[in-house]
């Protein structure tokens, strides 16, 4: 059972920021599927929740030239089912459809996931792998500057993610090894190709959260096929280790996942 807290449903960005500022220890909530379980376990105790999903600027999915722009409060289920997303970046739609279970997908939002930066979450790999731009209530942040380690981002206190703009790639693929219990990513690789450029982002494995695998990017830029990765390895030193996967196994899965993502563009590949 949670500790007592106040609840505020914000209607505008200004309203949200003011409500956040006026409380001692406020927290923004969108879908709540990370925050609420933490509160139920009494591991988080904000005195005010400021609910963001009714703010109009946080809604909408649209193609804007060579970009796909998704509102931060769009749910995983909405992204997965969107014809616009499926047409522009099918791997992104498939990724969204692989998050959690139907209940989670109908409440959880892209903005919530990205702002939380759980090291085992799916979305950060797509945001980083596609080189997206994160639009906030204050500014625009490049994906490469946004993720700052486990559960940490470039967001300032009170700053709100409003939408995320994804460059539409020539192709992209996502391969995920799931934790046998939680089904979060044990290691998952998002691979995107833009002409001769390739970006590879890996989530679930790194002890600093999502990261780009530059060696693989260079090898794939030269030759975009799974075999280009032969002999390349991620350093186990930077990997998380727990009873579900050791650092060495995670490092191995990074390579296997990247190869499978290259081999299966336009979709989700589940390694387990």
């Amino acid at each position: 059972m949670m500790y007592d807290f106040a609840y505020h449903r914000a209607r505008t960005l200004d309203d949200a920021r003011a409500a956040f500022r006026d409380a001692d220890d406020a927290a923004y909530v969108s879908g709540g599927h990370s925050l609420l379980p933490t509160m139920k376990n009494r591991l988080a105790a904000p005195d005010r929740l400021v609910h963001l999903t009714a703010i109009p600027e946080l809604r909408g999915i649209a193609r804007d030239g060579d970009r796909l722009v998704i509102g931060a409060a769009e749910t995983h289920a909405g992204v997965a089912a969107s014809p616009v997303v499926q047409e522009a970046i099918p791997a992104l739609a498939a990724l969204a459809g692989s998050i959690g279970d139907p209940q989670v997908r109908h409440r959880g939002t892209m903005g919530g996931s990205v702002a939380n930066n759980d090291p085992a979450a799916d979305y950060p790999s797509a945001v980083l792998g596609l080189g997206a731009t994160i639009h906030t209530s204050e500014r625009e942040i490049d994906a490469d500057d946004f993720f700052a380690g486990m559960f940490t981002t470039a967001l300032d206190e009170g700053e709100i993610v409003t939408r995320i703009a994804f460059p539409v790639p020539d192709s992209a693929g996502y391969a995920k090894m799931r934790n046998p219990a939680s089904r979060y990513a044990l290691a998952a690789s998002f691979v995107a190709r833009f002409g001769g450029d390739v970006r590879v982002a890996i989530t679930g494995a790194g002890s600093d959260g999502v990261f780009r695998w530059h060696e693989a990017e260079e090898a794939l830029a030269a030759r975009f096929e799974p075999g280009a990765l032969d002999g390349l390895a991620v350093d186990p030193d930077g990997m998380m280790s727990d009873m579900h996967a050791s650092a060495a196994f995670r490092a191995h899965l990074c390579a296997v996942g990247t190869a499978r993502a290259v081999a299966n563009p336009g979709r989700l590949t589940l390694l387990a």
Binding site: N179, P180, A181, S182, Y184, M243, H244
Partner: peptide, 25 residues
């Protein structure tokens, strides 16, 4: 045989599978 397990950390004596996040079914 495949997933379920209640391991205990030998050093701390703490159960490691305290939720469905860690207990596979």
């Amino acid at each position: 045989a495949m997933w379920e397990n209640c391991p205990i950390d030998a050093e701390s004596g703490q159960p490691l599978a305290g939720s469905l996040m860690d207990y596979g079914m």
